[in-house]
């Protein structure tokens, strides 16, 4: 907005609920649960891509694993007629994210791409965002972690290694989005559908995960989101997640 706007116009604008301007992109994901086999390839890919530390056996046992995406398992029915169901659970990048307003220092907020982002170096570690998150999608660095040789050689230079006391969570591999947008800007165009894929989407063997721009009506995500099987997890909380799950009931 320009500086010449009168105070009255500014007031009107800032009193608007929702976001200031239309998102450039509105990144979203569709997860087809009927295709998910629970193989955890996405979990591993995420671990490698985003420099997630390995907390060790003790850390895992006390419930402090750092995972940006996890496969939740639910048993359905009684033995012997029993079924195992999977839900890959990651940050839902809610439009009305409960985690954002609670941060006292703006370490988490909504950016112009419609992503719920976490600024690691701004985080002071109140952990309120994790407490407020109904999806438990946030992980906390209880300690500073080191990578034994030669594992440190595989750290991704595009992603910060987080310090102790910092909250972290799925970013939809924002470093890849940034790369794609950078290339697109050089060529003076928008990012094409399918040009950018988070690590989990890229590694899914059954292509249960699809990623794309929800602002583009022709993208694979927008089309899949129209699917009648679609639902949002904990929709009744009005968080309006960006991730749509497909499940045949």
């Amino acid at each position: 907005m320009s500086d010449s706007d009168s105070i009255k116009e500014k007031w009107k604008k800032y009193r608007n609920p929702g976001y200031q301007d239309k998102f450039d992109y509105s990144w979203g994901m569709v997860i087809d649960l009927d295709r998910c086999t629970g193989c955890e390839a996405c979990v591993t890919a995420c671990q490698a891509e985003n420099n997630l530390p390995i907390v060790g056996e003790e850390g895992f046992r006390s419930g402090r694993e750092i995972k940006w995406i996890r496969i939740e398992r639910y048993w359905d029915g009684e033995y012997p007629d029993i079924k195992l169901r999977f839900i890959p659970m990651l940050c839902q990048h809610c439009d009305n994210a409960p985690c954002e307003p609670v941060c006292p220092v703006y370490a988490t907020y909504h950016n112009q791409d419609g992503l719920n982002v976490q600024v690691y170096n701004r985080c002071i570690g109140t952990r309120s965002c994790a407490a407020y998150c109904p999806y438990d999608a946030r992980s906390f660095n209880w300690f500073s972690f080191t990578w034994d040789k030669p594992l440190d050689e595989q750290l991704n230079p595009d992603v910060t290694v987080r310090e102790k006391g910092v909250m972290e969570k799925c970013t939809f591999c924002i470093q890849r989005i940034r790369q794609a947008k950078d290339t697109a800007k050089d060529q003076n165009r928008r990012v094409r559908d399918g040009e950018v894929q988070p690590a989990c989407v890229q590694s899914c063997p059954t292509q249960a995960l699809v990623f794309g721009d929800r602002n583009d009506p022709d993208s694979a995500v927008s089309k899949l989101a129209q699917n009648p099987r679609g639902y949002q997890v904990l929709k009744e909380l009005n968080t309006n997640p960006s991730i749509i799950y497909l499940k045949n009931l």
Binding site: G59, S62, G63, R127, A131, S139, W142, G165
Partner: peptide, 15 residues
């Protein structure tokens, strides 16, 4: 020096 991990908090119980 080491991190708040010294306390017994964990992932759902961040407080």
């Amino acid at each position: 020096r080491t991190g708040v991990g010294l306390a017994g908090m964990n992932q759902p119980n961040v407080w």
